[in-house]
């Protein structure tokens, strides 16, 4: 999965030394260049200096609020931001995602989860430059240019809304897609979040593309936040 020619640069902002050490060991053993910052201010200045391809940002920092760091970085940086947070702090997660963070990971997490998120975010950032016309996930194929969907070679007919949802999900494969992102795509208005209405469309979509709609495998629910298309 990794791209051996180019070594991505990742900035880790976390105040706990043990987490920084663990992340450095996990990432650098996979040929990733890691820069470490222990405070928000240090994180911002290192981001300016090194222009990383991804930032891993802990929300609880000693000197400033992680949300403020996120806001500050987003004023100029386009690289993805991965938030680290503790369980149950949903409101913070949603706010961070609204402020421009790209995904989140709940502590404690395994190396596998962390790497999967980082890869998905880097892949997405890359594909934004030249998005592929067709995306394949297992037995599912989505042709974005022709607006066609195939399951096991059989064409599946979706409504316009269902297709837009699926398209946004597969373009962000393995990354969280918030209600806000969906609302913006469907209705052009990010503030017009209608989780209930979106759930109905997603439910219908699942019935058409999931092998077992009662136990969804592709479209997974991120409670209170949105959905995630899982390629696993």
């Amino acid at each position: 999965m990794s791209t051996p020619e180019r070594h991505p640069r990742i900035l880790v902002v976390d105040d706990e030394e043990s987490i920084r050490r663990a992340l450095r060991s996990i990432l650098s053993s996979r040929k990733i260049e890691v820069t470490l910052a222990s405070t928000g201010a240090e994180g911002i200045s290192l981001a300016i200096e090194t222009n990383p391809e991804l930032v891993v940002l802990d929300l609880s920092l000693p000197d400033m609020d992680g949300l403020d760091v996120c806001r500050e970085l987003r004023t100029w940086m386009v690289s993805p931001i991965l938030i680290l947070s503790v369980r149950g702090n949903e409101a913070d997660k949603i706010e961070a995602l609204d402020l421009g963070a790209d995904d989140y990971l709940t502590k404690p997490f395994s190396a596998g989860e962390l790497l999967a998120r980082i890869r998905a975010l880097l892949r997405r950032a890359e594909s934004r430059v030249g998005p592929p016309p067709e995306i394949r996930v297992g037995e599912l194929a989505v042709n974005l240019a022709k607006r066609q969907v195939f399951l096991n070679g059989q064409e599946v007919f979706l409504t316009k809304t269902e297709f837009e949802i699926l398209a946004l999900l597969v373009q962000n494969i393995d990354c969280v897609v918030t209600y806000r992102m969906l609302a913006e795509r469907l209705w052009g208005d990010p503030e017009d979040r209608q989780p209930q209405l979106l759930r109905v469309h997603v439910s219908n979509l699942r019935k058409k593309i999931e092998p077992h709609p009662a136990l969804p495998r592709f479209i997974r629910t991120e409670p209170g936040i949105g959905f995630r298309f899982s390629a696993e």
Binding site: A214, R220, T221
Partner: peptide, 28 residues
């Protein structure tokens, strides 16, 4: 919040160990 039964169960199964997950049969 209103959710589908399978959504919750799916997340739970996803968290189980592979060996445990293979033992669970879902008949929804």
């Amino acid at each position: 919040r209103w959710v589908e039964p399978g959504e919750v169960l799916g997340e739970v199964l996803f968290r189980l160990d592979r060996s445990d997950r293979d033992r669970v049969r879902v008949e929804l």
